[in-house]
């Protein structure tokens, strides 16, 4: 079996894939990615926080026109995962306004992004509708 790497370092793979934020130990603000300090309170101590894998779409757009190499159409969304805002694409849903709506319940799933020359597969994430 070939090796896998996450698309971004805040995606944790394994049996229960989920996102992991850097949470400020002083004020609780959550960030994705490497930090110098907290944008909310300027604190410098962070702990890893697992993000809920189910959430609600609080904003979306269906991108029909993008840079060469970006497959369109696709749905970009802002998902409220139990109080933490997460950006990602909606997947396994028709990218049209009849099938995507504000307030829809979604859950995190992993997706295959591609395989590099060494045979390593990159695994990304998206959100699919909860039946």
């Amino acid at each position: 079996m070939s090796e896998q790497v996450p698309l971004v370092d805040y995606l944790v793979l394994g049996d229960a894939p989920h996102l992991e934020a850097n949470e400020c130990t002083a004020c609780g603000a959550r960030f994705f990615g490497r930090r110098n300090a907290c944008a909310s309170c300027s604190g410098t101590s962070f702990a890893k926080a697992s993000i809920a894998t189910e959430g609600e779409v609080k904003a979306f757009t269906i991108v029909a026109f993008a840079a060469p190499g970006v497959d369109v159409p696709f749905v970009a969304a802002l998902v409220d995962c139990d109080g933490t805002s997460v950006g990602g694409n909606l997947v396994n849903v028709e990218p049209d306004p009849e099938h995507v709506h504000l307030g829809m319940k979604v859950q995190l799933v992993t997706t295959s992004v591609g395989t590099d020359s060494a045979g390593t597969e990159a695994i990304g994430f998206g959100f699919q509708p909860v039946d």
Partner: peptide, 25 residues
Amino acid sequence: DSDTYEPKGRQGAVVPLDGRIGTEI
């Protein structure tokens, strides 16, 4: 995309993210 996946930038992205995690436009 590069030939070999190596984490880059503040989020350790192995390939460009526009269109893969939301949109930059």
